[in-house]
Write a protein that binds this DNA or RNA. Sequence first.
DNA 1: CACAAAGTAAACCGATCTGTTTACTTGGCG
DNA 2: CGCCAAGTAAACAGATCGGTTTACTTTGTG
Lengths: 176, 176
Amino acid sequence: MRLFAEHGFHATGIDRIAREAAISKRTLYQYFRTKDELILAALRHKDGLFRNEFVKSVEAKATEPRQRLLAIFDVANDWFDSQDFFGCMFINAVGEHSSADSPVRRACVEYKRLVRNYILELAEAARLERPEALADELALLFEGATVTAQVSGDASSAAVAQRVATFLVERHTASS
Amino acid sequence: MRLFAEHGFHATGIDRIAREAAISKRTLYQYFRTKDELILAALRHKDGLFRNEFVKSVEAKATEPRQRLLAIFDVANDWFDSQDFFGCMFINAVGEHSSADSPVRRACVEYKRLVRNYILELAEAARLERPEALADELALLFEGATVTAQVSGDASSAAVAQRVATFLVERHTASS
DNA sequence: CACAAAGTAAACCGATCTGTTTACTTGGCG
DNA sequence: CGCCAAGTAAACAGATCGGTTTACTTTGTG
């Protein structure tokens, strides 16, 4: 996962993966029949990490659903600042796999759906108006902040996104 | 540029580029000494197209700077819907070139600066409050919409971004 | 201890990679 | 016409690609 994230998928050879994983190629091919299967497994593993790490980080930052919606961008800020941040692995994967029906693409679409649904759950728990629309908006902000941080190498985009997110949450608050 | 956009940079071989460009490899290497130089030239050319096509499209959609800020997302919608949309070439390039000091990375950072500055110019021309902050926000929305459209294959993210942009422009309007 | 499962290093396969070279063809211009 | 720049196709070079195979070593367990 580190090699794929840092150097991309096509640029990372099997030999290097085996060498840095300190296993022989034979053993590697015993667990993953092709490189594509290995890529898919890495993406699925990353998908699982989202549940186990990202969501838990958000939950640790705030307890109220409304605050958790904003805490997403605090967690994002920490992520962007971390040493091994090379952007969203799924976005990078899509950039190297254009065919819409490839398994890699499907895994990426699935991941993005997962993120958006998590935001939707928070919006519904916070009893905000038009939660679906808000989830679309916040998910879009999250993507934008991620890409901007990746290209610029500056984590401040998380703060920009959070600023906008605060406005949006206010706006989706029941006026009654 | 089409091959790089569709299949990525590492996955596109020199032989295929020469074949599809209907020139010999020898001639290709006469104009570009290495593949990296060719990639850089493609990115610089795309950079120039932004000025010549994107900006002109925005200017054709609206005349008032305030309306032009929102027209950005109309142009984005058309772009996402076009047949040969494979996401932002610069974002994809960064995904395959992680080292922060590579010429490719510098070209991508420069391009993003260009986009953000164009938005800033429009915000200043519209005499909106805190134009720098607004430019950061709208640029982030633009990135988010681009990536979301690329992954999902759905152009509707442009409308989501425009919805948020409308709200932001209102907020940055002088209350006097 | 004996044996089978699972590991290792390294050679090997055909294909493809970036980049060079060779030999030949074309086309514009004095 | 004659010449040279610029093009072509294709072979070639050395490296690396994804993937397989061979021969040997380790390791856990009955």
